[in-house]
Design a protein around this nucleic acid. Structure first.
Lengths: 342, 342
DNA sequence: CTGTTAGCGCCTTCAT
DNA sequence: ATGAAGGCGCTAACAG
C-alpha cells in the first residue's frame, strides 16, 4: 500500500544529484546530456518508480497527449475492432484515449462537456455521436477533428474517413439483378440521417436505374439498422401483399430481422426471395442461410482515422477524405450455392 | 477558426470584475457567493465560453476526475454494452474515461504506461487485460481498482464484480441431463486462466457429479471462446469416434463453432446432440437451431463496476465482491421446442 | 462574502 | 552540458 502520488521530478533530481532541468532533459531528450549524468538520472527514476504527472506536464506544454473519441451506442460487433484500430495507433504515438458515448442522450449538438480542447488535443467523431452543428462547433473551437463514417457539413473542412458504400451497394444489388434475375428489390434503409445508410441507398438506386427496374417509393422501407424494426417492416410489407423478390438491407442487423420475418411467413430464402446485407458482422456467416453481404474493414477505419487525426494535431496536412475499400462476400442468402441460383 | 486554448479564469475574473478566487468558488460551489456576483461571473463565463483547463485543475487538486479502463481485445458484441454501462455512471459522476486495450500485446504484467495514478483516479480492470502480478502492482501503487469478470489474486484485496457463472452453468447442464436425458456431455473450455470459463467448468462438473455421469478427462476440450477453435475441437472429437450426446460450451462463440462442426458432419442438433452456450450474444437467437444459453447482464456489470470504483476512489467502503445474476434462456439447440425434446 | 498569496509538478528560456 | 527562475491555470488556505 503505497502513496498514490509518487515521486516528483524533484525527488529524482535530488537522488541523482542534479537539477530538475537536467532530469526533464533526459526524460524528453530535448537537449543532449552527458552520458554519465543521464545514466544516474535513469537509475534514480527507476529506483523511485518515477512517472511524470500528466497534469503537470500538460499544463506546462499546453498539450494533453490525449485523443478524444466520441462514439455512438452502436449495436453489433464492430465497436471492438474500431476501437482496437484506433488504440493501436494512438498508443504507438504515445497518446492516451479519452472516450465518450452519445448514449441514450442521442447525438450531441455541441461537444459534450467531458471532451474538448481543455482535455484532449484532437477528437475522433463517429457517425451518430455529434450533429452537424456539433461538428461545426468543435471546428470553430479550433479543435483538431476527424470524422468517421461521416462527411463534414458544407463549409466545415474537417477530414473524414469512410468506407466505400455506394459502389459496393450498387455492386451487390446488381449481383441480385444480374446473377439471380431479381426484379423487385426492396431496400431497408438505415436511420434517417445516417450517411452510410444514405450512400448505400444511392448505390441501390443506381443499380435499379442502370437496369431499368422498378424504383418507386414503395420499394424502400425503414429498417433503422435494427433487427426488430427490420422484422416489423418486412412483416408489414408481406401482409400488404406488395410483390418483391429480393431485399437489400442497409446493414446485417436489419438483414437478420428481414430473414426472421421472411421465415415466419414461410417465404423461402433464397428460393423465393434473395437477401443481402452490409457490414459482414460476425453473425453474417451463421444465420441461415448464410448472409451475402459486403465486408467493412472496421479496424482499418479506426486506425486510419487515428492516423489522420494525428496529422492534424501535429499541424501536418491530412487527407480531406479517405475512403477505404469494401468487398462483396457472397454466401447463400442471395441464391448462390443453392440449387435455385447462380 | 478560434484559438484552441480559450479564456482562462483570469479573463473571466476580469470580465466579471472579481478575483479569480471568486470565479473558482462559483465554479466549484465550495463556498457561498452572493447571488449578484455569482450571476455576473456566470455571465462572463458564458460570454467567454470559458471551460476550466483540466490539467490545471488536476494539478491543483491532485485529482484527475478520470477513470481508467483496461480492456482486452474481446470478440463478440458485449464490448459496447459494457462500456455503455460504465460510461453512464462515470459521466453521471462527472468523471472522464481513459481507455486502454490489452490488444495484440496480451495481458499486461504491470500497469500499461498509458494508465496509472499519474493520469487517473481509479482503474477498471477487465478480465484478460492484466495478469495477477499486474493487479498486485496496481494495488501496491495505491491505485483504486475494481476488477471485472475476474477475482483478485490471493492477498490482494481488490473489489470485483462478476456474474453468476457456476450456478448458471450447473443449471443449464442439468437441464440437458434432466429434461433432455443427455448422458455424455462434452464441455468446450474457455482460454486457460479465464475465470468465467473456469467457473462455468466447475458448474459443469457439479452437474455431472450430482447425476453420477461420466466425468472423465476426455469430456472437456479447449474451445477458447473462439469459433474456429471450437469448430476444430469438435471436428476432432467426432472423427475420434468418442461418443457424446451433448455439448456445453463456455460461451456462445464456441457454441457457434460447435454447431458448424456438427453440421458439417451431418450430426443433427438437437436431434442427436444438444448444444448449449453461455452469454446470450446477439447471434444466439439467429443461429440454427437458436441457441439455448445463459444471459449475461453485461451493461449492468459495467455500471456496477463503475459504481464500486467510484466508492473506492472516494474512500467509501466498496463491496469486496458483487455477483450479478444470470438467467438461463431456453431456445431450441438443447432440444426444447422440437419434436424430440421437452 | 471576497481578495491575496502560495503552491501543485513540469517545461523552458536564460545564464553560465 | 548544466543550473536557476519564471510561468502554465487553477485551488486552497489565509486574511480581512
Amino acid at each position: 500500500m503505497g502513496e498514490t502520488l509518487g515521486a516528483t521530478i524533484h525527488d529524482v533530481a535530488r537522488a541523482a544529484g542534479v537539477s530538475i532541468s537536467t532530469v526533464s532533459r533526459v526524460i524528453n531528450g530535448t537537449v543532449p546530456v552527458s552520458n554519465a549524468v543521464a545514466a544516474r538520472v535513469e537509475a534514480a527514476m527507476q529506483a523511485l518508480r518515477y512517472v511524470p504527472r500528466a497534469a503537470a506536464r500538460s499544463l506546462a506544454t499546453r498539450r494533453t497527449q490525449t485523443l478524444g473519441l466520441l462514439m455512438a451506442n452502436m449495436a453489433g460487433d464492430f465497436f471492438e475492432p474500431l476501437l482496437s484500430g484506433i488504440e493501436a495507433v494512438a498508443t504507438e504515438a504515445d497518446y492516451a484515449l479519452l472516450i465518450s458515448l452519445a448514449g441514450r442522450r442521442g447525438p450531441h449538438g455541441a461537444l459534450p462537456p467531458g471532451l474538448g480542447p481543455h482535455n484532449c488535443d484532437g477528437l475522433l467523431v463517429f457517425a451518430g455521436s455529434l450533429t452537424a452543428e456539433g461538428v461545426a462547433h468543435g471546428h470553430a473551437l479550433g479543435l483538431p477533428m476527424v470524422l468517421i463514417q461521416l462527411r463534414p457539413p458544407e463549409g466545415v473542412p474537417v477530414p473524414c474517413v469512410t468506407i466505400e458504400n455506394r459502389a459496393a451497394a450498387r455492386e451487390i444489388v446488381e449481383h441480385l439483378i444480374v446473377v439471380h434475375g431479381r426484379r423487385r428489390i426492396v431496400m431497408l434503409l438505415g436511420p434517417a440521417g445516417n450517411e452510410d445508410g444514405e450512400r448505400r441507398e444511392a448505390g441501390y438506386h443506381e443499380a435499379l436505374a442502370a437496369h431499368g427496374l422498378a424504383n418507386d417509393h414503395g420499394m424502400t422501407l425503414r429498417g433503422n439498422f435494427e433487427r426488430g424494426a427490420a422484422r416489423a417492416a418486412v412483416s408489414q410489407l408481406i401482409t400488404s401483399g406488395a410483390p418483391f423478390d429480393a431485399i437489400f438491407t442497409g446493414d446485417d442487423e436489419a438483414a437478420v430481422g428481414a430473414l426472421q420475418a421472411l421465415r415466419s411467413f414461410g417465404r423461402q430464402v433464397p428460393g423465393e426471395v434473395s437477401v443481402a446485407g452490409f457490414d459482414d458482422q460476425r453473425l453474417a456467416e451463421v444465420v441461415s442461410p448464410p448472409l451475402t453481404t459486403v465486408h467493412a474493414p472496421t479496424e482499418q477505419v479506426g486506425a486510419e482515422a487515428a492516423r489522420q487525426l494525428l496529422r492534424v494535431v501535429r499541424g501536418e496536412a491530412a487527407k480531406p477524405r479517405v475512403v477505404l475499400p469494401t468487398k462483396m462476400v457472397i454466401r447463400r442468402s442471395c441464391g448462390c450455392g443453392s440449387e435455385s441460383g447462380k
